[in-house]
Nucleic acid binder design. Structure first.
Lengths: 251, 251
DNA sequence: CGTCCATTTGACCAAGCTCAACCGCCGTGG
DNA sequence: CCACGGCGGTTGAGCTTGGTCAAATGGACG
């Protein structure tokens, strides 16, 4: 059996999953078949509005996205950043209204996955069900890490943790050793992700620069002393891989 | 269609899942078969240590548990509370080391679920795979809510949100209308869950009492103005139910 | 060239933390 | 049966981190 779609249009989801576990042709086909049209978004565009009705998920094909909520008091909390290959909007699985907004951070492309099609995929492809369950579990841990960061760390550690996390995630797709990247986020975004104000994010970045932890030029951030930052924050890279040994063999 | 196991020994997991969706006998059987011996824990006992090796999950049968991490700086972050019917230790699915500690808050009972058995269950019971995936998605949203609470709310709102959440969760199993409960948590625990110190938790509780939001006697907490607190915090009850309409029909 | 938005900086403020002491309850051992 | 010790809760005084408000700078783009 062969992939039904040419390599150029293969979805980022199957690429990501096959990074964890070689997929059979049938599995890859099913993943492709599940996804609808590509939809293009420009930076800042809102894909899903929190509280609004929703009956589909999305796969990020290109670009960065984030999910966020708006607490009653005002302000915003950014919950997670999403990268190519991520399955997003999963709250629509459990409810018919979105629990968070999905916004494009940079220009991006997504494909839509109707809930029912995901249900069928999970039912018909046992190994994929396990793999997707593992990915959901990993997402849980990512949120837990963020929670620990915001709940118990000071501003510098929070920012350092986030930068290390972005770095780790970029390495998954970049392959080689990366120690710098273009950050498509404003300082307001960073603050909303870290539970800080943009003013304090600014001061914190400058202090990190002052202390020789990072250097900046424009949007580009370079992490100068990664080992030091890891020790300083207790950062654990969760992106490198996930266990698949417990999955049953191919059906 | 009948359940194969007598009600007395039926696991809390199948009871919880069948609350969302009536299970077939085969599904209920598979859930029971997956679980090992019951294990009894006393309040404060640690079931799983963060960082330690782990190759199984657990189902809470009785009592409250929590998962927590220890940031480098010291202190502790309680990530979630777990109640009967919850599948816990799910980080073991994605990695072979625990990302958080699991501790019994009150005396409790758990059953063990080997990873491989969960893998088989997901592969062989498509509808359960979908349902468990939905539960994992719901857990994600619960963590997101907590993140928003800690990231963007003040002490009173954080505490109020937690109390409302406990109330909502207790109602799932209690059935009737509950407006008070015995809190098995110390103020230190509350602080670790909310990203506050125990001292400030104390002051915050007393202020809530002063303002007529709650009343306390010993461990018992009564929520006096639930509607007011809901409006004040923007609390959304995620426990009431989850959508199952998208699941395929019985195999 | 002007407008908009992100960044930067300063002065001041306050929510929550730290440190420290004290109280009250309960279980335990003499 | 009572003294002791420990833990959880309560309270006070002073401090720190990060927030608020406000204004200036600077780059990108029409």
């Amino acid at each position: 059996m062969m992939f039904s779609s040419p390599a150029g249009t293969q979805s980022a989801l199957s690429m990501r999953l096959s990074h964890y576990l070689p997929l059979t042709a049938a599995e890859a086909d099913a993943l492709e078949e599940m996804q609808g049209e590509r939809r293009r978004l420009i930076a800042g565009e809102v894909l899903v509005e929190a509280g609004g009705p929703i009956d589909a998920l999305f796969v990020v094909q290109q670009g960065w996205f984030h999910s966020s909520t708006r607490p009653v008091i005002g302000g915003r909390q950014i919950l997670r950043f999403h990268y190519p290959g991520d399955l997003i909007g999963t709250s629509s699985i459990a409810w018919s209204r979105a629990s968070a907004s999905l916004t494009a951070v940079s220009d991006g492309i997504v494909t839509e996955v109707p809930k029912a099609k995901l249900g069928r995929l999970l039912a018909e492809h046992g190994r994929l069900a396990g793999l997707l369950y593992a990915v959901a579990a990993a997402e849980n841990v990512a949120l837990s890490d963020r929670l620990t960061s915001i709940g118990r760390m000071n501003a510098i550690q929070r920012l350092a943790t986030l930068l290390l996390d972005i770095l780790a995630r970029l390495r998954v797709t970049a392959g080689g050793v990366v120690d710098s990247f273009d950050l498509p986020l404003t300082q307001t975004d960073l603050g909303d992700a870290l539970g800080l104000t943009k003013v304090h994010v600014n001061r914190t970045m400058r202090e990190m620069e002052m202390r020789g932890m990072i250097s900046r030029s424009g949007r580009r951030i370079r992490v100068l002393d990664e080992a030091g930052l890891v020790a300083f924050t207790g950062f654990v890279d969760r992106h490198a891989e996930i266990a698949t040994d417990w999955l049953p063999a191919c059906a």
